[in-house]
Simulated scan of single mutants.
Amino acid sequence: MTVRVSGKVVTPTGVIRQGCVELDGDRITAVAEYPSIRDGHWIVPGFVDIHTHGGGGHTFTTGDADAARSAAAFHLGHGTTTLLASLVSSPYQLMRDATEAYAPLVKEGVLAGVHYEGPYLSAVRCGAQNPDFLRDPSVDELSELLALGGGTVRMVTLAPELPGALAAIELLVSHRVVAAIGHTDATYEQTGAGIIAGATVATHLFNGMRGPHHREPGPVFALLGSPNVVCELVADGVHLHQGALAFAAGVAGPDRAALITDAMAAAGMPDGGYELGGQPVVVSDGVVRLAGVDGTPGAIAGSTLTMDAALRHTLAAGVSIVDACRMAATTPARAIGLGERVGSLTPGLRADLVVLDDNLNVVRVMRAGTWLDR
Results as ranks from 00 to 15, higher is better:
residue 2 T to S: 14
residue 10 V to N: 05
residue 10 V to G: 05
residue 20 C to W: 07
residue 25 G to V: 09
residue 26 D to Y: 12
residue 28 I to M: 10
residue 29 T to D: 04
residue 30 A to T: 03
residue 33 E to Q: 07
residue 35 P to H: 08
residue 36 S to L: 14
residue 38 R to D: 12
residue 40 G to C: 05
residue 43 I to N: 00
residue 44 V to C: 05
residue 49 D to H: 07
residue 52 T to C: 15
residue 53 H to L: 04
residue 56 G to K: 11
residue 65 A to E: 09
residue 66 D to L: 13
residue 69 R to W: 09
residue 72 A to G: 00
residue 74 F to P: 09
residue 78 H to N: 14
residue 79 G to A: 07
residue 80 T to V: 14
residue 81 T to W: 06
residue 84 L to Y: 13
residue 86 S to F: 02
residue 87 L to E: 05
residue 87 L to P: 00
residue 91 P to T: 08
residue 102 Y to M: 03
residue 106 V to Y: 08
residue 113 G to M: 02
residue 116 Y to L: 14
residue 117 E to V: 09
residue 123 A to I: 11
residue 125 R to I: 00
residue 127 G to Q: 13
residue 130 N to P: 07
residue 131 P to I: 04
residue 138 S to W: 06
residue 138 S to P: 02
residue 138 S to L: 05
residue 148 L to C: 00
residue 149 G to D: 06
residue 149 G to L: 06
residue 154 R to F: 08
residue 156 V to W: 11
residue 161 E to Y: 01
residue 161 E to F: 01
residue 164 G to W: 12
residue 165 A to H: 13
residue 167 A to T: 09
residue 179 A to H: 10
residue 185 D to H: 07
residue 186 A to C: 03
residue 187 T to H: 02
residue 190 Q to R: 09
residue 192 G to A: 07
residue 192 G to H: 13
residue 193 A to Y: 10
residue 200 T to F: 07
residue 200 T to N: 08
residue 202 A to M: 12
residue 202 A to R: 13
residue 204 H to E: 01
residue 208 G to D: 02
residue 208 G to I: 01
residue 209 M to L: 10
residue 217 P to C: 02
residue 218 G to T: 01
residue 219 P to G: 03
residue 226 S to W: 04
residue 226 S to N: 11
residue 226 S to H: 03
residue 228 N to W: 10
residue 229 V to L: 03
residue 229 V to W: 03
residue 231 C to S: 14
residue 236 D to E: 12
residue 237 G to I: 09
residue 242 Q to W: 07
residue 244 A to D: 13
residue 245 L to Q: 15
residue 250 G to W: 08
residue 251 V to G: 08
residue 252 A to V: 07
residue 255 D to C: 01
residue 256 R to Y: 00
residue 260 I to H: 03
residue 260 I to N: 06
residue 261 T to V: 15
residue 263 A to G: 01
residue 268 G to E: 04
residue 268 G to L: 03
residue 269 M to F: 00
residue 269 M to H: 02
residue 272 G to R: 12
residue 274 Y to P: 10
residue 274 Y to G: 10
residue 276 L to N: 13
residue 277 G to M: 10
residue 279 Q to W: 06
residue 284 S to E: 15
residue 287 V to C: 07
residue 288 V to T: 12
residue 291 A to R: 14
residue 296 T to A: 14
residue 299 A to V: 08
residue 299 A to Y: 09
residue 303 S to T: 15
residue 305 L to D: 11
residue 305 L to K: 06
residue 308 D to I: 04
residue 308 D to G: 02
residue 311 L to A: 08
residue 311 L to F: 11
residue 315 L to H: 06
residue 315 L to V: 06
residue 316 A to C: 08
residue 317 A to V: 03
residue 319 V to Q: 13
residue 319 V to I: 14
residue 322 V to N: 01
residue 323 D to N: 11
residue 325 C to E: 04
residue 329 A to V: 12
residue 329 A to P: 13
residue 332 P to C: 07
residue 338 L to N: 05
residue 342 V to H: 08
residue 351 A to S: 02
residue 354 V to N: 03
residue 356 L to R: 00
residue 358 D to Y: 00
residue 361 N to V: 00
residue 364 R to S: 15
residue 366 M to W: 15
residue 367 R to Q: 11
residue 367 R to N: 03
residue 374 R to K: 14
residue 374 R to P: 15
